[in-house]
C-alpha cells in the first residue's frame, strides 16, 4: 500500500482578478509517495508549470518519470507534499471540478453501453435522462461512432473505446482537459486520425489542455507548447518550448515542415539525455 504524503502547508493565496490568470498553475509542486517499509519516494520535485486558458500544452518525458503523477496532481486525485496547485485563479482543494480527465488505461464503465457511458457525466449533473441521451448521441456522431451507441465497451476496438472516452470527457464541457497518453496503445494510423479528430474538436472551442505523451512527434503535431520532464526520481521540468507552427494543422503533413524538424531536433537533443538516464537506471536495476 502506498499513500500520498499530505500537504504540509496551507498558505493562503489572494485571488487574482478574473480573466487574467492561467487555467492551471503548478508552483513548486513536489509529490512524494510513502512506500511500504516507511521510506518516501519523491516522484516529482518542484515542478513549475502554467497552462493558459486556451493553451494546448504537451508534457513529454521518459517513461516512469512522473507525467501521470503530475497530471493526477492537476486533477486533484493526489495532493502534493509541498507547492501549490491553482485552478482558474483559485487554490485547488480536493478534486478539480473544472477538469475532464482522459485516462491512460481503459476507464469506461464496462456495464454501460457507449451511449450511456457518454451520457452519464450529464446525468449525474442533473440533466434529464432523455436530454442527456440526445446530447450523448450527438457527441458519439461527432467522434464518428453514431452507429455504435448500444455497444458495450468490450465490443469496441481500442481506438473506438478512446473515442467514446473522449466524448465522455468533452460532453461535460470542462474548461481544462487532462489527457494521459490517450492514444498510447493505438496503432500508428489510428493515432494520426485520433490526433486530427482531437485538434478538430479542440479548435472549435479552445480549452486548456495538458496532454501527456512519450511521443515527441505527437507532441509537436498537437501542442502550442512542449514541456520536457527529466528522468525520475525527483523529476523536474527542464525544458519549455513554444511551438509556433500555424493552425489549423494536418498532423501527418506538418511532419514534413522544415521548422517542425528543427524543433524536433532541438527537443530531442534534450529529451534523449533523459531517456538514456532513465534507461541507465532501468539497466542498473535489472543488473543488481
Amino acid at each position: 500500500m502506498t499513500k500520498t504524503v499530505a500537504a504540509a502547508s496551507g498558505a493562503g493565496f489572494r485571488e487574482a482578478p478574473a480573466g487574467s490568470e492561467p487555467a492551471v498553475e503548478l508552483d513548486g509542486v513536489t509529490i512524494e509517495f510513502a512506500l511500504a517499509g516507511g521510506s518516501v519516494f519523491q516522484a516529482v520535485a518542484r515542478a513549475d508549470l502554467n497552462v493558459g486558458k486556451q493553451e494546448f500544452v504537451a508534457i513529454i518525458g521518459p517513461t516512469g518519470c512522473g507525467k501521470s503523477t503530475l497530471l493526477n496532481a492537476a486533477a486533484g486525485l493526489i495532493t502534493p507534499a509541498s507547492g501549490s496547485v491553482r485552478v482558474l485563479g483559485g487554490p485547488l482543494d480536493g478534486l478539480n471540478r473544472h477538469a475532464g480527465y482522459l485516462f491512460q488505461q481503459d476507464a469506461l464503465l464496462p456495464w454501460k453501453t457507449a451511449l450511456d457511458n457518454v451520457a452519464i457525466g450529464l446525468e449525474v449533473a442533473g440533466v434529464p435522462s432523455r436530454e442527456a441521451k440526445e446530447r450523448a448521441r450527438a457527441w458519439l456522431a461527432r467522434v464518428g461512432l453514431a452507429a455504435f451507441g448500444d455497444r458495450y465497451p468490450h465490443m469496441l476496438s481500442g481506438g473506438q473505446k478512446k473515442r467514446v472516452a473522449l466524448a465522455q470527457v468533452l460532453i461535460r464541457d470542462p474548461r481544462i482537459i487532462l489527457m494521459d497518453e490517450p492514444f498510447g496503445p493505438l496503432d500508428a494510423q489510428t493515432r494520426l486520425i485520433m490526433g486530427d479528430l482531437l485538434l478538430k474538436l479542440w479548435s472549435a472551442d479552445r480549452k486548456a489542455v495538458m496532454f501527456v505523451t512519450h511521443d515527441l512527434e505527437e507532441a509537436l503535431g498537437l501542442a502550442d507548447r512542449v514541456v520536457v520532464m527529466s528522468a525520475g526520481p525527483s523529476a523536474r521540468i527542464i525544458g519549455d518550448f513554444p511551438i509556433p507552427l500555424s493552425r489549423p494543422r494536418d498532423i501527418s503533413e506538418i511532419r514534413l515542415d522544415g521548422s517542425f524538424q528543427e524543433l524536433h531536433r532541438d527537443i530531442w537533443h534534450m529529451l534523449k539525455k533523459e531517456v538514456l538516464k532513465a534507461y541507465g537506471e532501468i539497466a542498473q536495476e535489472t543488473a543488481s
Binding site: 480527465y101 485516462f103 464503465l109 457525466g121 449525474v124
Partner: peptide, 25 residues
C-alpha cells in the same frame, strides 16, 4: 481504481458512485 477515479472525475458524488460503480460491480 481507474474506473473509480474516472467516475469521480465525471462528477459523481458518493451516492452516485454507489449506484453506478459499486453496485454494478
Amino acid at each position: 481504481t481507474t474506473i473509480l477515479a474516472n467516475a469521480r472525475m465525471l462528477g459523481m458524488n458518493d451516492r452516485q458512485l454507489l449506484r453506478h460503480v459499486y453496485w454494478p460491480s
